[in-house]
Measured scan of single mutants.
Amino acid sequence: HSLRVHINGKDFEVHNADEHVIRALEELIRRGADADELKEFLERWKG
């Protein structure tokens, strides 16, 4: 899957995101994670 996440006016393109990554991202958003947390998660995932 390809996923586009809009954080703090920046678009993050997440390519080849598997279900696990997408679910983790949705969980963060549901918990009310702020932009920094989401960005950190995506950067860690992209490795």
Rank of each mutant, 00 (worst) to 15 (best):
A33D: 02
I7C: 02
E13Y: 14
A17Y: 04
E27S: 12
E13P: 02
D11N: 09
A17G: 04
A24Q: 09
W45T: 03
L28N: 01
L25K: 00
E43S: 14
L38E: 00
R23T: 07
F41T: 05
A35S: 10
I7R: 01
H6Y: 06
I29N: 02
L42K: 01
K39R: 13
A17Q: 06
E43Y: 14
D34H: 09
A33N: 03
I22F: 08
D18V: 04
G9I: 01
E19S: 09
A33V: 08
E43H: 13
H20L: 12
V21E: 03
A33H: 05
R23W: 12
F41S: 03
S2V: 15
N16A: 07
E13I: 14
E43I: 15
G32P: 02
W45V: 04
I29D: 01
G32S: 04
G32N: 07
E26W: 15
G47E: 12
E13S: 05
D34K: 07
G32M: 05
D11Q: 09
V21C: 03
G47V: 12
V5K: 00
H6K: 12
A17W: 03
F12M: 03
V5G: 01
K39C: 08
R23M: 10
E27I: 11
F12N: 00
E37F: 08
H6T: 14
D11Y: 15
N16H: 10
N16W: 05
I7L: 07
L25A: 02
L42Q: 02
L42M: 11
A17C: 02
N8W: 04
D36I: 07
L3K: 04
E27Q: 13
E27G: 09
A17S: 05
G47F: 15
E27R: 11
A35V: 15
H15R: 09
A35K: 04
D18R: 04
K39W: 15
L3N: 06
L3M: 13
E37C: 05
D34G: 11
H20K: 13
A24Y: 08
L3H: 09
L42V: 13
L38A: 03
R4S: 15
R30V: 08
R4A: 15
A24S: 07
R23H: 10
N16Y: 07
H6M: 08
E19Q: 12
R30D: 06
E27F: 13
V21D: 04
V5D: 01
N16F: 10
K10R: 11
N8R: 04
K10W: 05
R30P: 00
N16L: 06
H15N: 10
H15Q: 07
A33T: 07
R31F: 09
V14Y: 05
H20F: 14
K46N: 14
R44M: 13
L28I: 07
H1M: 06
A17L: 08
V5H: 02
R31M: 10
S2L: 13
G9S: 01
H15T: 10
F12A: 00
D34M: 07
H15W: 09
N8C: 04
H20W: 14
A33P: 04
G9A: 01
L25D: 00
A17F: 03
R31S: 08
A24R: 11
R44C: 06
E13V: 14
E26Q: 14
K10I: 11
A33Q: 03
K39T: 14
I22E: 03
D34V: 05
N8Y: 06
K39D: 09
D36T: 09
L28G: 01
F12L: 03
F41E: 06
R31P: 01
E43W: 13
D18N: 10
V14R: 00
H6I: 11
K46G: 13
E19M: 11
A24M: 11
L28E: 04
K39H: 14
I7S: 01
E27T: 12
N8D: 10
I29L: 12
I7P: 00
L3E: 05
L42F: 12
A35L: 13
D34L: 08
E13M: 09
I7D: 00
K10M: 09
G32A: 05
H15I: 10
K39Y: 15
R4F: 08
N8E: 05
V5I: 14
G47C: 10
L3Y: 13
G32D: 04
H1F: 03
E13W: 15
R30A: 12
L38Y: 03
D34S: 12
H6L: 06
R30C: 06
W45S: 03
K46D: 07
A33G: 06
F41P: 00
A35D: 08
D11M: 15
K46T: 13
D34T: 13
G9M: 01
I29H: 03
E26L: 15
A33R: 04
G47R: 08
E13Q: 06
R44D: 06
I29Y: 09
I7Y: 06
D11A: 11
E19K: 11
S2G: 12
H15E: 08
N16S: 08
N16D: 10
L38C: 02
D18S: 13
H20Q: 11
R23Y: 12
K46E: 09
S2P: 13
H15P: 05
E19R: 09
G47A: 12
H20G: 10
G32Q: 06
S2E: 10
I29R: 02
H6V: 12
E13D: 05
D18M: 05
E19L: 13
E26Y: 15
W45R: 03
E37K: 09
E43A: 15
H1N: 14
I22L: 08
I7F: 06
I7K: 01
K39S: 13
E40P: 02
N16I: 07
H1T: 15
H6E: 06
V21M: 12
N8P: 00
N16R: 05
F41Y: 08
I29E: 02
A24T: 07
V21K: 03
A24K: 10
D36Y: 10
R30M: 12
K46C: 04
R4K: 15
G47N: 12
G9V: 01
R4C: 14
S2N: 15
H1I: 14
E40D: 12
K10S: 06
H15D: 06
N8F: 06
A35C: 05
K46P: 10
D34A: 09
N8H: 06
L42Y: 15
H1K: 14
H1S: 15
E19N: 08
K39G: 10
A33K: 05
R23N: 08
N16P: 03
K10E: 13
V21T: 12
H20P: 07
R44N: 10
K10H: 07
D18A: 11
R31T: 08
R30K: 11
A17D: 03
G32V: 02
G32C: 05
R31W: 10
F41I: 05
K46L: 13
L28A: 05
V14A: 02
V5N: 00
E40M: 12
